[in-house]
Design a binder for these strands. Structure first.
Lengths: 213, 213
DNA sequence: GATTAATTTAAACGGGTGTTTAAATTAACT
DNA sequence: AGTTAATTTAAACACCCGTTTAAATTAATC
């Protein structure tokens, strides 16, 4: 049933790397299959279409991250009753960094894929994520809402999407930003350092009181 | 020298709309020229290439926005000595909304174009913006730094890019988010309402004290 | 009004895209 | 081993892309 290192896996490995760094539509199946050293037609044979390959690439990460994230959130919630926003966001660090064990650079690849997915393909991936992982997402949202009860639900909806934009854009530009930061400030940040920078920013933004003017 | 409504302008008008809603590489010259009701070859005749058309589309907005934004920031800075971050960010609202007078929906189109530019074309547009409008950008950055002197420069560099990600991603997804918000919370936000929501979030995030652990 | 320049047009160019096909190969099973 | 199923392969398909060309048309200049 399987060949040398599984054609399916070789395709996924090559695809996720290219998708993350150049985007979905900028990455051709011919480039993927040549990097993976498999035949062009094998993508359609194993995945059916490019669109389904994209979903498979994302699913491989979401299937690991989402359950782990939900577990960490629940663990927080069961303990000191109400966790701070910083604690809730920080609880996602471990699940995120564990993706590095799945694959080298897995954390940043995952976040970049997420961003590409949300921005490039209006809808179809957003639908895929919310329908397949809606339960886990709800766990996270509930914890955030409980931690910032002074923010009305509608406002929280917007702010959580602000956080998504913050982290997703940051990770998509992480390499370029790191280069500039290194040149201008002598800073060298890895993925974890950037995540730890962005969390206080997001937590403060989500919790800031709503002006009623 | 000019025909009915200037072929050049017809192309720019059609292109910016399509670029904003589908991205640069997802928008073909054939689609642009058919919407603009001009000949396919006229893009290359008037602009030289697709890449130069993209820059021309962005420049038309940046040339209006950047000077206006710098003026507003300077006006703030000369008055009550030190403006709050909320005031500084809010000073950008007027220049942003004035883009709606340039063209219907100009504000959101501009912000969406900016986001597409930063995410899609790693580098070449980023270079174009910083070299052509660096002075105006510096005015803004200086005001922010002065308003939050407790944030080290290197940290501020990252946080300002967080804000860029926040607003750019939000605007790129604005239509989709608005649909969800309308369905789930009965909310109907225009571009200005979303901008006014995002500013407190960004201001709080930029100013939050840095943890030294 | 004739001549020159600027613009528009239709057509083709060369190349890249995702997908499909049918034959060749490899693996699995009785 | 022989047969069936799964996989890999090379080639072609139909289509879309940005760009270029050369002729037709329109505008400007003398």
């Amino acid at each position: 049933m399987a060949s040398r290192t599984d054609t399916k896996t070789r395709i996924l490995d090559a695809a996720e790397k290219l998708f993350a760094e150049r985007g979905f539509s900028e990455t051709s199946l011919r480039l993927i299959t040549s990097k993976a050293e498999v035949n062009l037609a094998s993508v359609n044979y194993h995945f059916g279409s490019k669109k389904e390959l994209i979903r498979a690439v994302l699913a491989r990460y979401l299937d690991v991250f989402m359950p782990n994230a939900a577990i960490e959130i629940k663990r927080l919630h069961n303990a000191p009753e109400d966790a701070s926003l910083n604690e809730i966001f920080s609880a996602l660090i471990k699940p995120l960094l564990e993706l590095n064990k799945v694959r080298n650079g897995g954390t940043i690849i995952f976040l970049q894929l997420l961003g590409r997915g949300y921005i490039e393909s209006q809808g179809h991936l957003r639908w895929f994520i919310t329908t397949h992982y809606g339960e886990h997402l709800a766990t996270f949202v509930k914890a955030v809402v409980a931690s910032a009860p002074h923010i009305p639900p509608a406002e929280m909806f917007w702010r959580l999407h602000f956080t998504l934009g913050t982290i997703v854009f940051t990770m998509a530009s992480a390499d370029a930003l790191n280069e500039i930061a290194a040149a201008d400030y002598g800073e060298h940040n890895n993925t974890e350092a950037i995540i730890r920078k962005v969390i206080p920013y997001m937590a403060a933004g989500v919790a800031v009181p709503v002006l009623n003017n």
